[in-house]
């Protein structure tokens, strides 16, 4: 287990370093189109070949990693905090507040988000730089992703509310805020951590799909999502295995994070 953790840590550090140092490592700009060699196979010049427009896949992967690795966890954190706060408050308060918040959460879950997102896009200006556009997308995802987790948190908190340790904390003179922060939040940590880790890959993929609504990453900026979107149509990929590099990187990164974090808890 220890070696696993070490390997995962080294891997994460390498990915992070490579994405931060993309400006120096990347053999070409992510936007540069080598128009004389589109769809090229890997070569010394293009380590992962080139895409349909002749852009260096390796460089795009590096820059895409930077965008996604920064923004997806930020959005996941945001939705987790919202889920914890809203679900926690509702479950803790109980009574009619819980009923109202649960109803609101259900309503939120049943809203047709596609149309709301389209409306959001309609309200946004067209002339935004690609980076801002990606950032807006992740903020939106963060704002929308909390509801399902909030219900779980709410149910958990409700059970904690009637537990002995909360009763004892009250008997020790603890007030509401202290109960929430010192007693409930630590117990919610596993649920919230799970929500956080589930959200990251989900957000990365959702960001890719949002491209269809004109939200999300804009040309020519790459993100893991936009790189993964190239895998959508099923054609003879077995002949071009290097196209799976972004998927492999995503899977490895997310699982490495989990290995590191899991061990942290056990070791702690």
């Amino acid at each position: 287990m220890k070696t696993m953790r070490a390997v995962a840590l080294v891997f994460l550090a390498a990915v992070l370093a490579a994405s931060i140092a993309a400006n120096w490592i990347a053999p070409a700009s992510y936007a540069r189109q080598f128009r004389d060699q589109p769809d090229a196979a890997p070569s010394a010049q293009h380590l992962l070949g080139t895409d349909d427009l002749g852009r260096d896949r390796f460089s795009r992967l590096l820059y895409g990693t930077r965008i996604s690795l920064l923004l997806a966890p930020a959005a996941a954190l945001m939705s987790t905090v919202l889920a914890g706060a809203i679900g926690g408050a509702a479950g803790f308060a109980g009574g009619w507040i819980e009923v109202c918040v649960t109803a609101a959460t259900d309503l939120f879950l049943s809203l047709p988000w596609l149309f709301l997102l389209i409306t959001v896009r309609a309200c946004l200006p067209l002339n935004v730089s690609p980076v801002v556009s990606v950032a807006i997308t992740f903020v939106l995802l963060g704002c929308l992703g909390w509801a399902a987790a909030a219900r779980v948190v709410c149910a958990d908190v409700r059970s904690f509310r009637n537990s002995d340790f909360v009763l004892l904390a009250r008997a020790s003179g603890a007030g509401g805020a202290r109960l929430l922060m010192r007693h409930l939040v630590p117990n919610l940590a596993p649920v919230l951590a799970a929500q956080f880790w589930i959200s990251i890959p989900v957000f990365i993929l959702t960001e890719a799909n949002l491209g269809i609504l004109g939200l999300g990453v804009a040309e020519p900026l790459p993100s893991w999502g936009s790189l993964l979107r190239e895998l959508e149509s099923f054609s003879a990929y077995s002949a071009q295995p290097w196209l799976f590099a972004p998927l492999l990187l995503l899977v490895l990164t997310v699982s490495s994070f989990q290995i590191v974090l899991h061990n942290e808890e056990v070791a702690g």
């Binding site: 427009l53 389209i118 896009r121 002339n127 491209g211 609504l213 004109g214 804009a218 040309e219 020519p220």
Partner: peptide, 22 residues
């Protein structure tokens, strides 16, 4: 095509923001 136009116009100093909409 939009990405290629973006690149071609960048060569004469014009910045193009490509926006895809439903």
């Amino acid at each position: 095509m939009a990405a290629m136009i973006q690149q071609d116009l960048a060569a004469i100093g014009i910045r193009v923001h490509v926006v895809t909409l439903d």
